[in-house]
Write a protein that binds this DNA or RNA. Sequence first.
DNA 1: GTTAGCACTCGGATCAGCGGAGTGCTAATG
DNA 2: CATTAGCACTCCGCTGATCCGAGTGCTAAC
Lengths: 348, 348
Amino acid sequence: MKLNDRAETLLRALVELYINEGQPVGSRTLARKLKRSLSPATVRNVMSDLEDLGLIHSPHTSAGRIPTQEGYRFFVDSLLQIKPLEQLTLEEMQEKFSNESDPQLLLTKASELLSQVTHFAGVVLIPGQRSSLFRQIEFVKLASQRVLTILITDDGRVQNRVIPTDRSYAASELVEAANFFNQVYAGTSLADVRRGLLKEMQKDSDEMHRITATALAVAGKLFDDEDDGPDAVMLSGEANLLNVPDLCQIEKLQKLFDAFKTKQDLLDLLDRSMKVSGISIFIGGESGYRSLDDCSVVTAPYDHDGEIIGTVGVIGPTRMSYDEVIPVVDVTARLLSGALSTTSDRLE
Amino acid sequence: MKLNDRAETLLRALVELYINEGQPVGSRTLARKLKRSLSPATVRNVMSDLEDLGLIHSPHTSAGRIPTQEGYRFFVDSLLQIKPLEQLTLEEMQEKFSNESDPQLLLTKASELLSQVTHFAGVVLIPGQRSSLFRQIEFVKLASQRVLTILITDDGRVQNRVIPTDRSYAASELVEAANFFNQVYAGTSLADVRRGLLKEMQKDSDEMHRITATALAVAGKLFDDEDDGPDAVMLSGEANLLNVPDLCQIEKLQKLFDAFKTKQDLLDLLDRSMKVSGISIFIGGESGYRSLDDCSVVTAPYDHDGEIIGTVGVIGPTRMSYDEVIPVVDVTARLLSGALSTTSDRLE
DNA sequence: GTTAGCACTCGGATCAGCGGAGTGCTAATG
DNA sequence: CATTAGCACTCCGCTGATCCGAGTGCTAAC
């Protein structure tokens, strides 16, 4: 879509005004706002054109205009000039990430940071472990027939799981099995570990070494099912959205919070955005999920040593200051990537 | 406070009606509701007395009466007859707990259960680890200068923490240190472990055995600070409260969700209720926390092998069906206690 | 002690009227 | 030919008036 200069200037001014004030913008207001002094009548003519193009519309005859979803899209794609982040904010953000090395906590902090700085909801897609590399496993004997398994991956994440077993194992057996495991699989991806285990299992158990059998019996179940788990999306500051005037209708909030609870839509959305490099912006219903109808989602992928492993983002009303939110999301993703890399817990 | 029979019957009917309908109850309605056929006029007289006693009041001259906080309190203390739990609900609840042994997950499930069954918010106070018994510790070498510590307590909980260290330790050193630790402290409470460590630290480091020094260096920081952590309260189904008509004002919800975020008030409240055996009910502002003004909290402590270690509860509007919520909370606490005990991961 | 009757009060719904903000159209203007 | 001024028109939201229903408190009768 191509607009002439004047129309663009006008649309930009209109969207900015609406984002700031939250009320339909009339021709008079818009005319006053512009340096190039146009009369309200001229402005009206242009607005009429913009309305025909589907970029703005009036809620009713005698109200001003507000941007449509397409209007926001055009604004974001072609007109938006992103503000650089305030120095103070930047320092505050860096501050938050310094002195922290636990990957889990880093993700939590990123999410909190996003919600605090933007006053909307912060969201983090936590990478599935499928692609991480196996580093180490530990087995701890609990009550008879149950073993605590501790799986440590290359990116420093730790997963605990209690596994019921067929028989009771002696502590020494478990140590042997763990050692075996650690030697054989160190450095391979979890998916490969899984494949390896499946292969082992197909062998006849008689031929198997005793230690291997133990390892299989205990760890088999661990790798059996999906490891990504249902909690791959982390949300912070949902309550911030209660303050947002655009969403103050209970039913909207209900839909939204329902979506937050199930998390499936969010997960899909973030997963999609992970496949794009750089900032993604989903405006209103563009995402295709009705629950996010009045919301926009701004996301950016983050990486661990160059490989994209997840996404951070902000969920706010469609009427948000994109020029402020975008750099915040961008910087958060960068800081998070940085923090994850420098603290990378590689094997030596 | 003592009421005559008729007044009690009337008050009970009034509260029940109001809880069901959510609207001020007038004398005519109340008269119709009662089997003993009293005339509205008589009912009015009694209501007038009840109002003088501060148990009910009218929002305005020509509306019916609604219970005051004190009215609810009297109702709950003296008039409430608790419904037995429906068989179906009970089975559903048992279902949810079966096949689960991980204590962490059990707590999560309890919280979810409470919110699902009552359609309010479920809350669980997660016991601080201070009183749990030390079972086992593992040290895993990460990148140089950082060690992953895994602390396992007697109740089956597992705590991971990455600890930065002063120097780089060899894997063998860490194994030795862990063994040392496990032998010396197995079975003592975490508080005692902490005390023991402090004592060791005061000794001159020259006299110390090398292994002890390593153990101290790595684990010292782990026990240094409060281990209860900021996440000792777990909430589920907050979003359910959006559906509650009594709370549908945005500002109330804001206050409430703010409280949920900081969690401090909740923590205090639940902590108080842990010291009482059996169901506790905090009605409206009774708790002393303004954020819970329009809410009531119903709690019950749960135990692990007889020792009370935490609390489960439901947060809902003051106008809730106490006769239904109370048994749900009660049963949840029992089921949880049971599940924690039968799966108790004692050392053998 | 209980009840019937009655005047009174108050909130909520409905409606008309009004002012303001904004539009669309037309005709005039540079 | 683009721009502007003028004007009639529309529609929302606010205000005040009115009415109705629900409920009360009081008094007098049973």
